[in-house]
Amino acid sequence: MTRLSDRHIPARVEFVALLAAFALFLSTVEYMIPKPVPFMRIGLANLPLIIGLGILSDREYFLLAVLKVFGQGLVTGTIFSYIILFSLAGTAASTLVMYVFYRFARRFISLLGVSIAGAMASNIAQLQLSRLILFGDAARLIAPPFLAVGLVTSILLGLFAESFVVKSQWYAKQKENRP
């Protein structure tokens, strides 16, 4: 399944790399969108992680998360700086939360709820980290606007993902192939 032999990379893993590349593409798109507030992010790059829930196996899903963080760090050149810690903390928290919600509460929540929960987890993790390495106790002051902006963007992202899952032919095809 996700085992790599030396010469040949299996099709499934290649598919994960494709999704990870898509995340990378979305983060460059996000980079080009002007933002009024420096700490505001839309989190477009999380779209593959939301969509991937339905078409990837557990191991593939977490591999996607690792590749997303690593690839972003390399593309932006931040892999050896503090920024990679934020990326890592945020992605780890949101990935875990979204995974748990999707696997165990699929009956009660749609991708909208998954997206909101993931964004909240990611932002809380990043706030805790900013308390440790950037702002100290003052991190509490930026918490409300930071979380509120994250909530709004995650709602939009969640609705988009839900809509994508319904309409996309590509997704439907992948859903059938899911191991």
């Binding site: 509460a105 009956r107 009660f108 929540i109 749609s110 991708l111 909208l112 709820g113 909101i116 929960a117 909240m120 809380i124 509490r140 918490a143 409300p144 979380l147 509120a148 909530l151 709602i155 609705l159 988009f160 839900e162 809509s163 319904v166 309409k167």
Partner: peptide, 28 residues
């Protein structure tokens, strides 16, 4: 784009939304 999913929302979505808003209010 946002047309289709409205019908597919589930009660848990609103629970998560309300909890999130509560967390933001608490953080203030």
């Amino acid at each position: 784009c946002y047309d289709a999913p409205m019908r597919r929302l589930k009660p848990g979505d609103f629970v998560i939304l309300i909890i999130s808003v509560a967390i933001i209010l608490l953080s203030m």
